[in-house]
Design a protein around this nucleic acid. Structure first.
Length: 339
DNA sequence: AATTCTTTCAACCGCGCTTTG
DNA sequence: CCAAAGCGCGGTTGAAAGAAT
């Protein structure tokens, strides 16, 4: 068992509040809480290996674990399951998370279904610790249109660039390598394709395509396939892409910076104060900063913006450095100028 | 070296939905 | 059909590790 960072909630056998069935069980049976011991892990793994998963409460009892069924389930699904992958979130995974979150919001389990081996908990943690951190840096709400536009028009294209750069650098590149897993991975789940991920990014929306360098076949490292809902209304732009993405058994992680922003991608409650409110009298952040028209009408070369800091593309923690100081400064300048 | 601050993430909580008897 | 039990999901917490002072 590798080193576990973070303590979760403290180990104790404290009396719990009444109400929940698990709490009742704990009170009655003096169940354990807090971090799992190696012995408990071993017991749970052994039991599931022999009996399989099942009703978690009875499983916990039968296995002799002084844990709630819920706790056993969580431990198994998030940590002990043989196909669980932990470690750095890869660029491809980051891109997927951003894209899927833009569609579905905080539907972590749904998002996790499309990231083999990743748990909803891990994705949720990633979002909260990394993505929300950057929203905070930009002094905007993570659910605001500003931030979503920034993700879509700046962050995601940069991720694409990094993926492509890493792919061009070769299969041993640290950025394209699959996560530095610390646990075993199964063949079926660790191999997946990002076929036809992004060849062209339609920056403008109505056909003006930012031609990105041809990816050095992003999928070449990954075999197998993961299904993604092919009926999604968020689709890539160009006919050639749509045709190449038609492979029935390949994962087509498609995103378009201009995919229906007002439909599936930004389908948030209208009463959200932070959410985009049409304003015909003044330019919104999105129009002046991160929207395609905003960028290009102001003569800002998107590529230049993206290339402002090469170190962003360089080493460092793959899962971090999503923004650098210049990005933040730039975006904040735009905010100051236009609000 | 010691202390404080920040970040990370495993684990818990509560709610709502589903299954079971 | 109903009540209880079980399950899954999203939100939150807080201990430990690492960074900064």
């Amino acid at each position: 068992m590798d080193h576990v960072k973070g303590g979760g909630r403290g180990v104790c056998n404290q009396q719990l509040t009444s109400g929940e069935e698990d709490d009742m069980m704990m009170t009655m049976m003096d169940l354990r809480r807090g971090p799992w011991t190696v012995e408990e892990d071993f017991t749970l793994i052994n039991y599931i290996a022999h009996h399989g998963e099942g009703r978690w409460n009875s499983l916990a009892r039968c296995a002799g674990l002084k844990r709630t069924g819920k706790s056993c389930r969580l431990r198994w699904l998030n940590y002990l399951r043989p196909d669980v992958r932990r470690g750095n979130i890869t660029l491809e995974e980051q891109l997927l998370i951003l894209e899927l979150h833009s569609r579905w919001g905080n539907r972590w389990s749904k998002i996790a279904q499309h990231l083999p081996g990743r748990t909803d908990n891990e994705i949720k943690n990633y979002w909260r610790t990394r993505v929300q951190k950057h929203a905070k840096q930009l002094k905007c709400d993570v659910n605001s249109k500003q931030f979503k536009d920034t993700m879509r028009y700046l962050w995601m294209p940069r991720l694409v660039e990094r993926i492509q750069a890493a792919a061009a650098a070769g299969p041993n590149s640290s950025t394209t390598a699959m996560a530095t897993t610390t646990t075993a991975t199964t063949t079926s789940n660790s191999n997946y394709q990002f076929n036809n991920m992004i060849n062209n990014v339609d920056i403008i929306g109505s056909g003006q395509v930012m031609q990105l360098p041809q990816p050095n076949n992003l999928s070449s490292h990954y075999g197998g396939g993961v299904q993604m809902n092919p009926s999604s209304s968020t689709s890539l732009i160009t006919p050639e892409n749509s045709s190449t993405a038609a492979s029935s058994d390949s994962f087509t992680a498609q995103f378009s910076p201009v995919s229906d922003l007002t439909t599936d991608c930004y389908n948030y409650p209208v009463n959200n104060q932070d959410y985009y409110q049409p304003n015909t009298n003044q330019l919104s952040y999105g129009e002046t900063l991160t929207s395609p028209t905003g960028y290009f009408n102001q003569g800002l070369d998107f590529q230049v913006v993206m290339d402002q800091n090469n170190t962003w593309m360089d080493g460092g923690d793959v899962s971090d450095n999503l923004w650098n100081a210049e990005d933040v400064w730039f975006l904040q300048q735009q905010l100051n100028n236009n609000i």
